[in-house]
Design a binder for these strands. Structure first.
Length: 270
DNA sequence: GCTGCATGATGAA
DNA sequence: TCATCCTGCAGCA
């Protein structure tokens, strides 16, 4: 589940659910025992997201850094929580809810230097509301420095922070850009379109809690909510199926070690 | 019960 | 480019 929209949604939800409260912290699995003991009984002050990274601020100055990786997930339980699964790395209980974390790539207490080094490796975050034109310019500059295919560049978090495998395929489809086009050869107007589409789509995803890129009108549905499973995306995981716009067979390949899909007809910009 | 896969990232070679 | 680390669950038998 975790692309940037999910992470920002978690930041918002966790802030709403736990910030300002005294939190009971533990590590049922044991792999975060020392950190949990240090945080236990303290106040969670704020939660921030940058790209796919989460930063939990605690009174006294500690920061908990969480990165979900491919498998990580949070579960929130209001009231009495169920027994945590064996893989539950972190449990945080506030006044009304308990949040469990399992499968993260990172769950560590970090200092200001660590955080700075993490952030310095991240490109602009399309969900950072304080950015406007700067984000797009930074993305353009980052792309102009690379010859790798645009489809690979969008997954590189130092180029743009928060895009994952679903959005890279869907946004390139929406932009009509073929994934193989070298990053530094993507025309300015397409870079602009890509930035706008990413920001738009991630915002929608953050609000909805799921990725729906298909415009419902295009397939005869009334609203996004009416779209059934299997109707919500244009190309992702649709190998060989007809393109929703032109009917051509959706192509599949590999790029940056991950599967990628595109429409050979609609994505003709080279 | 077992297998394979997944919306991620890193470090070695 | 490859191996490796993180878990849970769908799809099988």
């Amino acid at each position: 589940m975790p692309e940037g929209h999910t992470i920002h949604r978690y930041a918002r939800k966790h802030r709403e659910t736990l910030a300002g409260q005294t939190i009971t912290v533990s590590s049922p699995q044991g792999r975060f025992s020392a950190g949990a003991a240090r945080l236990d009984g303290r106040t969670l002050e704020d939660v921030e997201a940058h790209g796919k990274h989460l930063f939990y601020r605690w009174d006294g100055g500690d920061t908990l850094h969480v990165h979900l990786g491919l498998f990580g997930r949070f579960r929130t339980h209001r009231g009495e929580p169920p027994r945590p699964s064996d893989g539950t790395r972190l449990a945080m209980t506030g006044d009304e809810a308990t949040i469990y974390l399992s499968g993260p790539t990172a769950c560590d207490l970090i200092g200001p230097d660590d955080e700075e080094s993490i952030r310095s490796r991240l490109g602009p975050d399309p969900l950072d509301a304080s950015l406007n034109g700067e984000g797009m310019e930074e993305l353009a500059a980052n792309l102009s420095r690379r010859r790798i295919p645009i489809g690979a560049a969008l997954l590189n978090q130092s180029v743009i922070a928060g895009v994952g495998n679903v959005y890279r395929a869907e946004v390139l489809f929406l932009a009509g850009v073929h994934p193989e086009v070298p990053a530094n050869e993507v025309p300015d107007e397409d870079v602009e379109a890509i930035w706008g589409l990413i920001r738009d789509q991630l915002r929608r995803g953050e609000r909805a809690g799921r990725i729906i890129t298909v415009d419902p009108k295009e397939i005869g549905a009334r609203t996004r909510r009416d779209l059934k499973r299997g109707e919500r995306l244009y190309v992702y995981k649709r190998t060989g199926e007809p393109c929703r716009r032109c009917g051509a067979s959706v192509a599949h390949g590999e790029m940056a070690n991950r599967s990628i899909w595109w429409c050979p007809t609609c994505q003709d910009r080279h």
